[in-house]
Protein backbone atom coordinates (compact mmCIF):
# COMPACT_ATOMS: atom_id res chain seq x y z
CA UNK A 1 0.00 0.00 0.00
CA UNK A 2 1.33 3.42 -0.82
CA UNK A 3 1.31 6.39 1.51
CA UNK A 4 -1.46 8.15 -0.40
CA UNK A 5 -3.87 5.30 0.20
CA UNK A 6 -2.71 4.83 3.79
CA UNK A 7 -3.28 8.50 4.47
CA UNK A 8 -6.78 8.61 3.05
CA UNK A 9 -7.74 5.41 4.91
CA UNK A 10 -6.63 6.88 8.22
CA UNK A 11 -8.60 10.06 7.54
CA UNK A 12 -11.61 8.11 6.37
CA UNK A 13 -11.59 6.12 9.62
CA UNK A 14 -11.62 9.33 11.61
CA UNK A 15 -14.39 10.79 9.50
CA UNK A 16 -16.31 7.59 10.11
CA UNK A 17 -15.69 8.00 13.84
CA UNK A 18 -17.08 11.50 13.61
CA UNK A 19 -20.15 10.34 11.70
CA UNK A 20 -21.01 7.80 14.39
CA UNK A 21 -20.19 9.85 17.49
CA UNK A 22 -21.67 13.06 16.15
CA UNK A 23 -24.82 11.30 14.90
CA UNK A 24 -25.51 10.05 18.41
CA UNK A 25 -24.97 13.55 19.75
CA UNK A 26 -27.01 15.34 17.07
CA UNK A 27 -29.84 12.81 17.17
CA UNK A 28 -29.99 12.90 20.96
CA UNK A 29 -30.39 16.68 20.84
CA UNK A 30 -33.18 16.34 18.31
CA UNK A 31 -35.07 13.65 20.22
CA UNK A 32 -34.71 15.72 23.37
CA UNK A 33 -36.27 18.73 21.65
CA UNK A 34 -38.98 16.61 20.06
CA UNK A 35 -39.86 15.05 23.40
CA UNK A 36 -40.18 18.54 24.88
CA UNK A 37 -42.69 19.46 22.19
CA UNK A 38 -44.70 16.30 22.82
CA UNK A 39 -44.39 16.57 26.60
CA UNK A 40 -42.33 13.44 26.94
CA UNK A 41 -39.16 15.16 28.05
CA UNK A 42 -39.23 13.52 31.48
CA UNK A 43 -38.62 10.21 29.71
CA UNK A 44 -35.57 11.15 27.71
CA UNK A 45 -33.70 14.08 29.18
CA UNK A 46 -31.98 12.14 31.96
CA UNK A 47 -30.60 9.45 29.75
CA UNK A 48 -29.43 11.91 27.15
CA UNK A 49 -27.72 14.19 29.67
CA UNK A 50 -25.96 11.27 31.27
CA UNK A 51 -24.51 10.08 28.01
CA UNK A 52 -23.63 13.42 26.48
CA UNK A 53 -22.11 15.31 29.38
CA UNK A 54 -18.64 13.78 29.68
CA UNK A 55 -18.10 13.10 25.99
CA UNK A 56 -19.44 16.07 24.06
CA UNK A 57 -16.04 17.70 23.66
CA UNK A 58 -14.53 14.54 22.25
CA UNK A 59 -17.04 14.59 19.38
CA UNK A 60 -15.73 17.84 18.02
CA UNK A 61 -12.16 16.63 18.05
CA UNK A 62 -12.92 13.89 15.51
CA UNK A 63 -13.98 16.56 13.04
CA UNK A 64 -11.00 18.79 13.77
CA UNK A 65 -8.76 15.78 13.36
CA UNK A 66 -10.24 15.01 9.97
CA UNK A 67 -9.89 18.45 8.45
CA UNK A 68 -6.47 19.14 9.87
CA UNK A 69 -5.39 15.70 8.68
CA UNK A 70 -6.72 16.14 5.17
CA UNK A 71 -4.97 19.47 4.74
CA UNK A 72 -1.82 17.85 6.15
CA UNK A 73 -1.82 14.80 3.91
CA UNK A 74 -3.41 16.51 0.91
CA UNK A 75 -2.52 20.23 0.98
CA UNK A 76 -4.17 20.73 -2.42
CA UNK A 77 -7.55 20.16 -0.81
CA UNK A 78 -7.03 23.43 1.08
CA UNK A 79 -6.90 25.17 -2.28
CA UNK A 80 -9.79 23.39 -4.01
CA UNK A 81 -12.20 22.91 -1.16
CA UNK A 82 -11.05 25.97 0.79
CA UNK A 83 -11.93 28.23 -2.10
CA UNK A 84 -15.36 26.79 -2.86
CA UNK A 85 -16.57 25.87 0.61
CA UNK A 86 -16.33 29.24 2.33
CA UNK A 87 -20.08 29.70 2.66
CA UNK A 88 -21.39 26.21 3.52
CA UNK A 89 -18.57 25.43 5.93
CA UNK A 90 -18.76 28.86 7.60
CA UNK A 91 -22.43 28.21 8.25
CA UNK A 92 -21.59 24.80 9.68
CA UNK A 93 -18.93 26.36 11.93
CA UNK A 94 -21.40 28.90 13.26
CA UNK A 95 -23.99 26.22 13.96
CA UNK A 96 -21.38 24.01 15.62
CA UNK A 97 -20.18 26.93 17.71
CA UNK A 98 -23.65 27.86 18.90
CA UNK A 99 -24.48 24.27 19.59
CA UNK A 100 -21.25 23.35 21.38
CA UNK A 101 -21.04 26.42 23.56
CA UNK A 102 -24.69 26.44 24.47
CA UNK A 103 -24.52 22.84 25.44
CA UNK A 104 -21.86 23.81 27.96
CA UNK A 105 -23.71 26.93 29.04
CA UNK A 106 -26.85 24.94 29.61
CA UNK A 107 -25.48 21.92 31.38
CA UNK A 108 -22.87 23.63 33.53
CA UNK A 109 -24.42 27.03 33.90
CA UNK A 110 -28.09 27.82 34.02
CA UNK A 111 -30.78 25.36 33.21
CA UNK A 112 -33.93 24.78 31.28
CA UNK A 113 -35.17 26.91 28.42
CA UNK A 114 -37.51 25.49 25.83
CA UNK A 115 -36.52 27.74 22.96
CA UNK A 116 -32.92 26.86 23.50
CA UNK A 117 -33.59 23.12 23.53
CA UNK A 118 -35.52 23.54 20.31
CA UNK A 119 -32.72 25.46 18.60
CA UNK A 120 -30.28 22.90 19.89
CA UNK A 121 -32.32 20.09 18.41
CA UNK A 122 -32.74 21.74 15.03
CA UNK A 123 -29.03 22.57 14.81
CA UNK A 124 -28.41 18.84 15.16
CA UNK A 125 -30.14 18.35 11.82
CA UNK A 126 -28.79 21.46 10.09
CA UNK A 127 -25.13 20.71 10.82
CA UNK A 128 -25.07 17.29 9.12
CA UNK A 129 -27.04 18.82 6.25
CA UNK A 130 -24.53 21.60 5.68
CA UNK A 131 -21.56 19.27 6.10
CA UNK A 132 -22.99 16.62 3.78
CA UNK A 133 -22.95 19.21 1.00
CA UNK A 134 -19.19 18.66 0.93
CA UNK A 135 -19.77 15.05 -0.12
CA UNK A 136 -22.18 16.16 -2.82
CA UNK A 137 -19.64 18.62 -4.19
CA UNK A 138 -16.98 15.92 -4.22
CA UNK A 139 -19.13 13.92 -6.67
CA UNK A 140 -18.30 16.40 -9.39
CA UNK A 141 -20.45 18.54 -11.63
CA UNK A 142 -20.69 21.53 -9.31
CA UNK A 143 -17.16 22.93 -9.48
CA UNK A 144 -15.66 24.49 -12.59
CA UNK A 145 -12.10 25.62 -12.94
CA UNK A 146 -12.18 29.16 -14.35
CA UNK A 147 -8.86 30.98 -14.78
CA UNK A 148 -7.14 28.31 -12.69
CA UNK A 149 -9.54 28.97 -9.86
CA UNK A 150 -12.24 26.58 -8.68
CA UNK A 151 -15.71 28.12 -8.77
CA UNK A 152 -18.77 26.62 -7.14
CA UNK A 153 -22.01 26.66 -9.13
CA UNK A 154 -24.45 27.41 -6.31
CA UNK A 155 -27.50 27.25 -8.51
CA UNK A 156 -26.67 23.81 -9.88
CA UNK A 157 -25.90 22.61 -6.39
CA UNK A 158 -29.16 23.81 -4.88
CA UNK A 159 -31.34 22.56 -7.70
CA UNK A 160 -29.77 19.13 -7.93
CA UNK A 161 -31.93 16.29 -6.57
CA UNK A 162 -28.71 14.56 -5.58
CA UNK A 163 -27.90 17.36 -3.12
CA UNK A 164 -31.21 17.00 -1.37
CA UNK A 165 -31.09 13.22 -1.36
CA UNK A 166 -27.75 13.32 0.38
CA UNK A 167 -29.04 15.89 2.86
CA UNK A 168 -32.03 13.67 3.62
CA UNK A 169 -29.82 10.61 3.95
CA UNK A 170 -27.60 12.43 6.42
CA UNK A 171 -30.62 13.39 8.52
CA UNK A 172 -32.09 9.89 8.42
CA UNK A 173 -28.71 8.40 9.37
CA UNK A 174 -28.31 10.77 12.29
CA UNK A 175 -31.72 9.89 13.68
CA UNK A 176 -31.38 6.17 13.06
CA UNK A 177 -27.87 5.81 14.50
CA UNK A 178 -28.80 7.87 17.51
CA UNK A 179 -32.05 5.99 18.13
CA UNK A 180 -30.40 2.56 17.94
CA UNK A 181 -27.61 3.63 20.27
CA UNK A 182 -29.95 5.21 22.80
CA UNK A 183 -32.23 2.16 22.70
CA UNK A 184 -29.30 0.15 23.94
CA UNK A 185 -28.07 2.82 26.33
CA UNK A 186 -31.51 3.20 27.93
CA UNK A 187 -31.74 -0.55 28.26
CA UNK A 188 -28.38 -0.60 30.00
CA UNK A 189 -29.51 2.18 32.28
CA UNK A 190 -32.64 0.13 33.00
CA UNK A 191 -34.79 3.04 32.00
CA UNK A 192 -37.58 1.04 30.37
CA UNK A 193 -39.77 3.93 29.36
CA UNK A 194 -36.94 5.65 27.50
CA UNK A 195 -35.92 2.31 26.05
CA UNK A 196 -39.39 1.72 24.59
CA UNK A 197 -39.58 5.21 23.13
CA UNK A 198 -36.13 5.04 21.53
CA UNK A 199 -36.89 1.60 20.16
CA UNK A 200 -39.95 3.02 18.45
CA UNK A 201 -37.90 5.85 16.94
CA UNK A 202 -35.22 3.42 15.76
CA UNK A 203 -37.78 1.30 13.91
CA UNK A 204 -39.48 4.38 12.43
CA UNK A 205 -36.25 5.81 11.02
CA UNK A 206 -34.97 2.53 9.60
CA UNK A 207 -37.36 2.91 6.64
CA UNK A 208 -36.35 6.37 5.40
CA UNK A 209 -32.70 5.49 5.89
CA UNK A 210 -32.65 2.55 3.53
CA UNK A 211 -34.97 4.29 1.09
CA UNK A 212 -32.66 7.31 0.79
CA UNK A 213 -29.56 5.13 0.49
CA UNK A 214 -31.03 3.23 -2.44
CA UNK A 215 -32.35 6.45 -4.00
CA UNK A 216 -28.87 7.98 -3.99
CA UNK A 217 -27.28 4.98 -5.67
CA UNK A 218 -29.93 5.17 -8.39
CA UNK A 219 -29.41 8.91 -8.86
CA UNK A 220 -25.70 8.40 -9.25
CA UNK A 221 -26.44 6.60 -12.48
CA UNK A 222 -27.77 9.88 -13.86
CA UNK A 223 -25.40 12.23 -12.15
CA UNK A 224 -22.10 10.50 -12.64
CA UNK A 225 -22.16 7.20 -14.57
CA UNK A 226 -18.47 6.71 -13.97
CA UNK A 227 -18.95 6.76 -10.22
CA UNK A 228 -22.07 4.61 -10.52
CA UNK A 229 -20.11 1.87 -12.30
CA UNK A 230 -17.54 1.95 -9.51
CA UNK A 231 -20.26 1.55 -6.93
CA UNK A 232 -21.80 -1.40 -8.71
CA UNK A 233 -18.44 -3.09 -9.04
CA UNK A 234 -18.12 -3.34 -5.27
CA UNK A 235 -21.73 -4.35 -4.68
CA UNK A 236 -20.79 -7.10 -2.19
CA UNK A 237 -19.78 -4.45 0.34
CA UNK A 238 -23.09 -2.66 -0.04
CA UNK A 239 -24.77 -6.07 0.16
CA UNK A 240 -23.07 -6.88 3.46
CA UNK A 241 -24.07 -3.48 4.76
CA UNK A 242 -27.70 -4.11 3.81
CA UNK A 243 -27.66 -7.52 5.48
CA UNK A 244 -26.24 -6.04 8.66
CA UNK A 245 -28.94 -3.41 8.55
CA UNK A 246 -31.66 -6.05 8.35
CA UNK A 247 -30.11 -7.95 11.23
CA UNK A 248 -30.00 -4.81 13.40
CA UNK A 249 -33.64 -4.02 12.72
CA UNK A 250 -34.62 -7.60 13.43
CA UNK A 251 -32.78 -7.59 16.76
CA UNK A 252 -34.42 -4.36 17.81
CA UNK A 253 -37.79 -5.62 16.69
CA UNK A 254 -37.33 -8.78 18.74
CA UNK A 255 -35.77 -6.80 21.66
CA UNK A 256 -32.86 -9.17 21.72
CA UNK A 257 -29.11 -8.65 21.83
CA UNK A 258 -29.24 -4.87 21.95
CA UNK A 259 -25.52 -4.54 22.58
CA UNK A 260 -24.97 -6.64 19.49
CA UNK A 261 -27.37 -4.47 17.51
CA UNK A 262 -25.20 -1.42 18.17
CA UNK A 263 -22.16 -3.37 17.02
CA UNK A 264 -23.96 -4.45 13.85
CA UNK A 265 -25.12 -0.89 13.25
CA UNK A 266 -21.56 0.38 13.42
CA UNK A 267 -20.42 -2.38 11.06
CA UNK A 268 -23.27 -1.62 8.69
CA UNK A 269 -22.21 1.99 8.42
CA UNK A 270 -18.56 1.03 8.28
CA UNK A 271 -19.17 -1.14 5.23
CA UNK A 272 -21.36 1.40 3.50
CA UNK A 273 -18.99 4.24 4.32
CA UNK A 274 -15.97 2.39 3.03
CA UNK A 275 -17.80 1.07 -0.02
CA UNK A 276 -18.67 4.65 -0.81
CA UNK A 277 -15.10 5.74 -0.15
CA UNK A 278 -13.57 2.98 -2.28
CA UNK A 279 -15.89 3.75 -5.17
CA UNK A 280 -14.75 7.37 -4.89
CA UNK A 281 -11.12 6.34 -5.36
CA UNK A 282 -8.89 7.92 -6.54
CA UNK A 283 -10.74 11.23 -6.57
CA UNK A 284 -10.78 13.78 -3.78
CA UNK A 285 -12.76 16.16 -5.98
CA UNK A 286 -14.14 14.54 -9.10
CA UNK A 287 -12.66 14.98 -11.72
CA UNK A 288 -10.22 17.75 -10.76
CA UNK A 289 -8.20 16.33 -7.90
CA UNK A 290 -7.02 12.83 -7.08
CA UNK A 291 -5.24 11.66 -3.97
CA UNK A 292 -2.08 11.35 -6.06
CA UNK A 293 -2.08 14.91 -7.38
CA UNK A 294 -3.10 16.34 -4.06
CA UNK A 295 -0.62 14.46 -1.94
CA UNK A 296 2.04 16.09 0.16
CA UNK A 297 5.73 15.24 -0.09
CA UNK A 298 7.19 11.95 1.16
CA UNK A 299 9.00 13.50 4.13
CA UNK A 300 5.90 15.16 5.47
CA UNK A 301 3.77 12.08 4.84
CA UNK A 302 6.15 9.85 6.77
CA UNK A 303 6.37 12.24 9.69
CA UNK A 304 2.59 12.57 9.78
CA UNK A 305 2.22 8.79 9.87
CA UNK A 306 4.75 8.55 12.70
CA UNK A 307 2.99 11.33 14.61
CA UNK A 308 -0.28 9.55 14.03
CA UNK A 309 0.95 6.25 15.43
CA UNK A 310 2.49 7.99 18.45
CA UNK A 311 -0.74 9.89 18.94
CA UNK A 312 -2.82 6.72 18.86
CA UNK A 313 -0.62 5.17 21.53
CA UNK A 314 -1.56 8.13 23.70
CA UNK A 315 -5.22 8.32 22.78
CA UNK A 316 -6.44 4.76 22.79
CA UNK A 317 -5.68 4.13 26.49
CA UNK A 318 -7.18 7.54 27.33
CA UNK A 319 -10.36 6.83 25.41
CA UNK A 320 -10.54 3.43 27.04
CA UNK A 321 -10.37 5.09 30.45
CA UNK A 322 -13.09 7.57 29.49
CA UNK A 323 -15.40 4.84 28.28
CA UNK A 324 -14.70 2.61 31.25
CA UNK A 325 -15.50 5.36 33.71
CA UNK A 326 -18.65 6.55 32.00
CA UNK A 327 -20.06 4.65 29.06
CA UNK A 328 -19.41 1.15 30.40
CA UNK A 329 -19.68 1.93 34.07
CA UNK A 330 -22.88 0.42 35.33
CA UNK A 331 -23.09 2.67 38.37
CA UNK A 332 -22.69 5.77 36.26
CA UNK A 333 -25.02 4.72 33.46
CA UNK A 334 -27.87 3.74 35.75
CA UNK A 335 -27.45 6.94 37.73
CA UNK A 336 -27.12 5.03 40.99
CA UNK A 337 -24.11 6.89 42.14
CA UNK A 338 -23.71 10.37 43.51
CA UNK A 339 -23.11 13.20 41.11
CA UNK A 340 -19.38 13.78 41.06
CA UNK A 341 -19.54 16.80 38.84
CA UNK A 342 -17.28 19.66 39.88
Amino acid sequence: MNLEVLGIIVLWIFLFGYVIVASIDFGAGFFNAYSLLTNKSHILSNIIQRYLSPVWEVTNVFLVFFFVGIVGFFPQTAFYYGTVLLVPVSIAIILLAVRGSYYAFESYGSRGHKGYAFAYGVSGLLIPSSLSVVLTISEGGFVDIIDDLPQLDFWALFTSPLTWSIVLLSIASVLYISAVFLTWYAWKAQDWEAHELMRKYALIWAGPLIFMAVAIIIQMQQHNPDRFRNMISIWPMFGISATLFLMTVWLIWKKRGLGLSVGLLILQFLFAFFAYGISHYPYLLYPHLTIYEGFTNQEMAISLVIAFIAGLCLLIPSLYLLFRLFLFNKEYVTGNQKDFHA
Binding site: P54, E57, N60, L319
Partner: peptide, 15 residues
Amino acid sequence: FFFEAIFLGIYLYTW
Protein backbone atom coordinates in the same frame (compact mmCIF):
# COMPACT_ATOMS: atom_id res chain seq x y z
CA PHE B 1 -6.18 18.86 22.22
CA PHE B 2 -7.83 15.45 22.03
CA PHE B 3 -5.79 14.30 25.01
CA GLU B 4 -6.78 17.38 26.98
CA ALA B 5 -10.47 17.06 26.12
CA ILE B 6 -10.66 13.44 27.25
CA PHE B 7 -9.04 14.07 30.61
CA LEU B 8 -10.92 17.27 31.25
CA GLY B 9 -14.15 15.31 30.81
CA ILE B 10 -12.93 12.70 33.27
CA TYR B 11 -11.58 15.23 35.79
CA LEU B 12 -14.77 17.22 35.71
CA TYR B 13 -17.00 14.28 36.47
CA THR B 14 -14.91 12.49 39.07
CA TRP B 15 -14.75 14.94 41.98
